[in-house]
């Protein structure tokens, strides 16, 4: 009796386990697929929203540059601003800068200063804050 009652119960348990496993798989696999699809969709949606936003806000004759059409994108972290750099006299400049190097030159109230483009280049170098001929300026081009 013991044997006949215990045997079917082992089989039943095994059947129950198999059924449970199949049921779990039946729920889990589509769920996992759905989640991954949803994530994929979400990623694509955000991508297309970005490109849509860029297209929508692209400046044009109908949508000229203005605070309303201003949609900048952060591409590098903000570097510190530049206001401290050596100022050389023409004599001191000899041997530093070469004749064919391009410079951004400015004259204000009789005072002249040149900013070499080869110095004024790069995210942390695009704008030099300075004072010349009694005015405060930002050398940039």
């Amino acid at each position: 009796m013991v044997e006949t009652t215990s045997k079917p119960s082992v089989v039943k348990r095994m059947v129950r386990l198999v059924v449970l496993a199949v049921l779990s798989a039946a729920v889990a696999v589509p769920a996992a697929l759905a989640i991954s699809k949803w994530q994929d969709w979400q990623f694509r949606a955000s991508e297309s929203a970005l490109s849509l936003a860029m297209t929508e806000h692209a400046i044009s004759l109908e949508n000229p540059p203005s605070p309303e059409s201003f949609f900048p994108m952060q591409v590098v972290s903000r570097p510190p601003s530049v206001s401290d750099f050596p100022i050389l006299s023409a004599e001191e400049a000899k041997g530093k800068i070469e004749d064919n190097e391009l410079v951004l030159g400015v004259t204000i109230n009789g005072e002249s200063r040149a900013y070499p483009l080869n110095v004024l280049t790069g995210p942390d170098r695009e704008v030099f804050n300075d004072q010349l001929g009694g005015r405060r300026i930002a050398a940039t081009w």
Binding site: F85, K96, I97, V103, G105, S112, Y115, F128
Partner: peptide, 27 residues
């Protein structure tokens, strides 16, 4: 502010008393 991009040779010939802003080249 009106400015001019030219080469150093031209600039120094026309602005002998002018000064030069300098840092090690980045280009």
């Amino acid at each position: 502010i009106p400015s001019l991009i030219t080469d150093w040779k031209s600039w120094k010939a026309r602005n002998a008393k002018g000064s030069l802003a300098w840092l090690p080249r980045s280009a």
